[in-house]
Simulated assay, not measured.
Amino acid sequence: MYFTDRTDAGRQLAARLEHLSDQDVVVLGLPRGGVPVAEQVADRLGAPLDICLVRKLGVPFQPELAMGAIGEGGVRVVNDRVLRETGVSDRDVAAVEERERGVLRERVGRYRGARRPVPLDGRTAVVVDDGLATGATALAACRVVRARGAARIVLAVPVAPHGWPARLGGEVDEAVAVREPEFFYAIGQFYTDFSQTADEEVIACLDRGHAAHGGAARQADEDPRG
């Protein structure tokens, strides 16, 4: 095991990102498990914390296998290799996407409430998750933040398979991982405690970030572009 839990993973990851402390950074966690990791990074960098909402499109008969992902703003990423290997039809993909779009809309309301996203125009966006497996969700997240005007994108995770930046197709400016093991089965194998992150914990993290960076949050509330 590399990490006790997501808080420990976040602290270890934050130590790898200190070179960003002099930049205009916004830290964006991927709900749910990426948010407690991102909170530690935001605290270490003294940066505002926000979320980047994306949903994995799981293969219907093997939901844990990502055949793609969707994000806010209509972003959609499909893994053609997984589709070929599993034989999933266009109709099945559309059905899964329709369902996940509904979940995405519901979570936008649940997590953001009345708050607008923190503005990203011209800033460095640090996209954080609790690990990277296929990369589909992270790729969707990076495209979302690029579309929102981020000048530079850093994708940061505690653990990812060896050689993982090659999977990102040039979508990020910097890729950072604490560990890159050769033998990678699932993200949870590298955590002592990888229990599911509750919605209440996500909201609590965001509330603490809002309180710590009220100025940035107010700017987001007032910015009509958010």
Rank of each mutant, 00 (worst) to 15 (best):
M1W: 05
D5S: 09
R6I: 04
D8N: 14
D8H: 14
A9E: 03
A14R: 03
A14I: 07
E18C: 03
L20D: 00
L28D: 09
V35W: 06
E39P: 00
E39V: 01
E39T: 01
Q40F: 10
V41K: 08
L45N: 01
G46D: 03
G46V: 04
D50Y: 06
C52R: 07
K56I: 12
Q62Y: 02
L65N: 08
G74I: 13
D80A: 15
E85F: 05
G87Q: 04
D92R: 14
V93S: 02
V93T: 02
A94Y: 09
G102K: 09
G102V: 05
E106M: 06
R107Q: 14
V108C: 08
V108M: 11
G113Q: 07
R115Y: 14
V118K: 06
V118T: 12
P119D: 13
D121N: 13
R123W: 03
V127P: 00
D130Q: 09
A133L: 13
A133C: 14
A138W: 00
A141F: 09
A141D: 04
R143D: 03
V145N: 08
R148P: 00
R148N: 03
G149A: 09
V154S: 04
P158A: 08
P158W: 02
A160E: 03
H162N: 07
W164Q: 09
G169N: 11
A175N: 06
A177M: 08
A177N: 03
E182H: 12
F183Q: 12
T192Q: 14
E200Y: 00
I203A: 10
C205Y: 02
L206P: 01
D207Y: 05
R208E: 08
R208S: 06
G209I: 01
G214R: 11
A216L: 11
Q219D: 12
A220Q: 10
D223C: 12
